[in-house]
Design a protein around this nucleic acid. Structure first.
Lengths: 336, 336
DNA sequence: CAATTCAAGTTAAACGTTTAACCAATTTCA
DNA sequence: TGAAATTGGTTAAACGTTTAACTTGAATTG
């Protein structure tokens, strides 16, 4: 543990060259170094297992080759794929990723942005939480480029966005339910204070309207993005005596919880009640009946976000605020 | 983006003090600084939104307040909770976490260890992959303390381990199946080349032996820790005409896949076939029927590992190689 | 009242790199 | 043959901190 680590100086001394020479060799700026010297230095370095100290390097280059990934909760199965996509792209380009869970807590987000700038990450991928007043959040004060995933927001620091069209997605989901013959379609939402959630509600209402189905307040239940809430919401619907024949859910977790509770109430799916989720987490195809849902390309979102970020970092920073809307896909399975 | 960041020097100049003074104030080594100066410096710092550069700091202190977390795949639902537990503990103590997915690939592991030492992490939490020859792996060459999670291994650099007793866990799982009256118990394993897997097999065999049930090779199917393999393995068992009345699975994913396939074959669970998983991922209680399984305290494992690691880093390094064996718990639900 | 301690700082070296600017010896070219 | 270009390097400053050692003037002590 206290093994003193070998530095560029040691290598230089042993090879009988200046440290600049060693540095250049290690950075492939070695056109002006003879093959002999190069080999000698490399051998000595290998022998002593020399690993350059990237603190020292970063101090002068102002690049850490590290990215921050801020998301609500890695335990929510929606996020690991995003993280994985981002990590894969990052590694490919020589970057590492620091992961930060915020539990959708604004203070925690700000705190993390501060920590990350202190650690000098080169950029941040950010799934930010609900409504932020754009006065003086950490997001505004941040000094590195930010790419937003999944949830939209406008700010100077935001150099790119990777989103889906939530309105269109939920629209086509509800249309599918209507085509299947369902008419009394409830909506169990996870929240209503992100733009994402609002857009989805809009899509839901538009689908109803376009088909001459009247929207009713009592069809909407708002809670959180967890299976437990799906179960509670179904119980609530029954208790309130709401008459319904389908449920459109804010995400798959809610849908899976709802299905479980429906079965407990003796309902058959999809005969009595149709169910539709959102996200297409891997579990969606493993539950009984397999869940019809809207697939979000999570891995790709993470991957694309990392790609945009790295481009923003390394590119000749022509304020390239870009925005990618990825396609969602209606995945029809057995629950509808 | 190119906003030149304000340094300690700027603050010092504006406050009319030396940089040492500012540094001391920021590090709470300020017993010898008057309240007046302290306030003045703090105000100026806040005004300019001064954030210390931790590269520069780390360069002299040799501490980065960053940990590495190396695991096979964050998408596997077994790992996010570990990651979360580790992150929570880390944050609490002022550390950040760099996450690394290896896909159980040995070269990737070594590569990551190298990257992490280059980035000067203070320590590493590591769920290493299958059989490593202890000759010259990155694990041996690593210069920072390592805590192992879930999978055992011996090395000088390993300063601690957080494990469960896999033999005892699977033993009690199989005993439960036997008590429920099952006798022809197959075992769908995820792999057999980790010590973890071997121990589980041992527990399985011992449980059979202790109850006078003969062990049969054909009962064992070895594949990978995925639902798809669970489905395939069940198909295989039927194709081979194996006569069985219960399945002990290497993890919950396998169990969920197996259940799905069994239902397709028209088997009733638990009446015709009993199923037991391993891990207790959150999905286990949401599938139909709810899955009986062995609960691993994942969050706690991550949390404990981070705690041990931080202790090893900050403690007066009395070679405190420690080993924690956490308790597993048999969770009896509807599938057995 | 001289010697000592204390308060409130300052100075300067060190951490391990990168990189622009420089240099000497040799080779090329017109 | 002399100027220019190339080869194979070297020197030294800079990056932004921390920290041990030093300083200076005022207060305390015996």
């Amino acid at each position: 543990m206290k093994k003193k680590s070998v530095t560029i100086k040691d290598i230089a001394k042993e090879a009988g060259v200046s440290i600049a020479t060693v540095s250049m060799i290690f950075n492939n700026k070695d056109k002006n170094i003879s093959q002999g010297t190069r080999d000698r230095v490399m051998n000595i370095a290998k022998l002593h297992n020399y690993i350059p100290n990237s603190m020292a390097r970063s101090l002068v280059t102002k690049r850490t080759k590290t990215l921050g990934l801020i998301l609500p909760d890695i335990v929510n199965p929606f996020f690991p794929e995003i993280a994985r996509g981002a990590e894969d792209k990052a590694r490919e380009s020589g970057y590492s990723i620091i992961i930060c869970n915020t539990d959708d807590n604004l203070e925690q987000e700000d705190r993390y942005i501060e920590i990350l700038t202190e650690k000098m990450v080169d950029g941040i991928i950010f799934t930010h939480s609900a409504d932020r007043n754009n006065t003086n959040s950490g997001l505004e004060r941040c000094r590195v480029p930010i790419i937003l995933i999944d949830r939209d927001y406008d700010s100077d620091n935001v150099k790119g966005k990777v989103l889906i069209d939530n309105g269109e997605a939920s629209y086509k989901g509800v249309i599918h339910l209507i085509e299947k013959g369902y008419r009394k379609i409830t909506y169990i939402a996870g929240s209503l204070n992100t733009q994402t959630a609002k857009d989805r509600l809009k899509g839901y209402r538009k689908a109803l309207e376009d088909n001459g189905i009247e929207f009713e307040e009592k069809y909407i239940k708002v809670g959180e993005y967890r299976s437990l809430w799906g179960m509670e919401a179904v119980t609530l619907l029954f208790e309130e005596g709401v008459d319904f024949d389908a449920i459109f859910c804010g995400n798959d977790l809610i849908a899976i919880g709802a299905m479980k509770k429906l079965k407990e109430f003796g309902k058959r799916i999809p005969e009595d009640i149709g169910i539709m989720g959102f996200d297409d987490i891997y579990m969606a195809s493993l539950v009984e009946p397999e869940l019809t849902t809207i697939k979000q390309p999570n891995y790709e979102m993470g991957h694309k976000a990392a790609q945009m970020l790295i481009r923003a970092i390394e590119g000749n920073e022509k304020n390239t605020e870009s925005k990618i809307i990825l396609e969602t896909e209606l995945v029809v399975r057995k629950s509808s």
